[in-house]
């Protein structure tokens, strides 16, 4: 069981809560969501407690994350996009901290569950749709009809645009979910080999000697996973910014 690569994604109830037939228990997943919020808030609020004109190291990390998300949003959605800044920043920090917390051994990775990433993606898309219609009315539908397309091609292009729009929440959520899931499984499998090789009696001395190879792989993969944890949070944020840009400026 200790080497089962799927076990780490298991959800276990901590405080069982049942409403009618719905199971709304406080689970390990919920615990790590709370931990993510707590870590994010403490990082940001304690980092800025000095309010230093010349930032401390911690404060400059806080400022860097702020400037990083702000410049990402401004470059894809322009200055008008800054009205979504709290939302985009919350998304980025939530995904990033959840991914990074998942890198601790025995910790649960919130973003390795498709329902969580899908819920976040749907939140993004519904923000785009609601804001787009609220601001532009039916002109928002112009998003699906690009300018400068010959008349005969419009139905086809519009169909493609609609399909691509509908696939956005899926691609957005599956990308993050699959990256986290696959990374954690790979890591578990390779480090599991180390234990298996050390413990196996049939291989004699050969087992402990060769166990160094999956160990090296495990170390390398850990580094890669930290990169992926950051990169996927960034990709999620950049795509969110681009979709929000569509809501702000529906005409291509």
């Amino acid at each position: 069981m200790a080497q089962d690569p799927i076990h780490q994604f298991q959800i276990s109830k901590i405080i069982p809560i049942e409403v009618g037939s719905l199971d709304l228990s406080f689970t390990n997943s919920a615990l790590f969501m709370v931990a993510t919020v707590a870590v994010t808030s403490l990082f940001l609020i304690m980092g800025t407690s000095g309010r230093g004109l010349v930032p401390s190291r911690w404060q400059s990390m806080v400022e860097m994350s702020y400037e990083f998300v702000a410049s990402t949003l401004r470059s894809s959605a322009g200055n008008e996009g800054m009205r979504f800044f709290p939302f985009v920043f919350s998304l980025f920090m939530f995904v990033l901290i959840a991914n990074l917390l998942g890198m601790f051994p025995y910790f649960f990775t919130v973003t390795s569950h498709i329902i969580v990433t899908f819920a976040l993606a749907m939140l993004v898309i519904s923000t785009v749709v609601v804001y787009g219609f609220a601001k532009h009315g039916t002109k928002f539908l112009g998003l699906f009809v690009p300018h400068g397309v010959p008349g005969a091609l419009i139905p086809l292009v519009t169909l493609i645009e609609v399909i691509s729009f509908l696939s956005r929440p899926i691609s957005l959520s599956v990308r993050l979910f699959a990256n986290m899931l696959a990374g954690h499984i790979t890591l578990k499998v390779f480090t599991g080999f180390v234990v298996s090789l050390l413990a196996s009696e049939s291989l004699g001395l050969f087992g402990p000697v060769t166990s160094i190879l999956p160990l090296i792989m495990g170390v390398a993969l850990t580094g890669l996973e930290f990169l992926v944890a950051f990169l996927q949070a960034y990709v999620f944020t950049v795509l969110t910014c681009m979709y929000l840009n569509d809501a702000l400026h529906p005409s291509h």
Partner: peptide
Amino acid sequence: PPFNSETFASQILWLAITFGLLY
């Protein structure tokens, strides 16, 4: 586990609570 729909309701609820709080 990620495809076990029995846990979906709880995860969505707690995500909504925590993400709302974070926001």
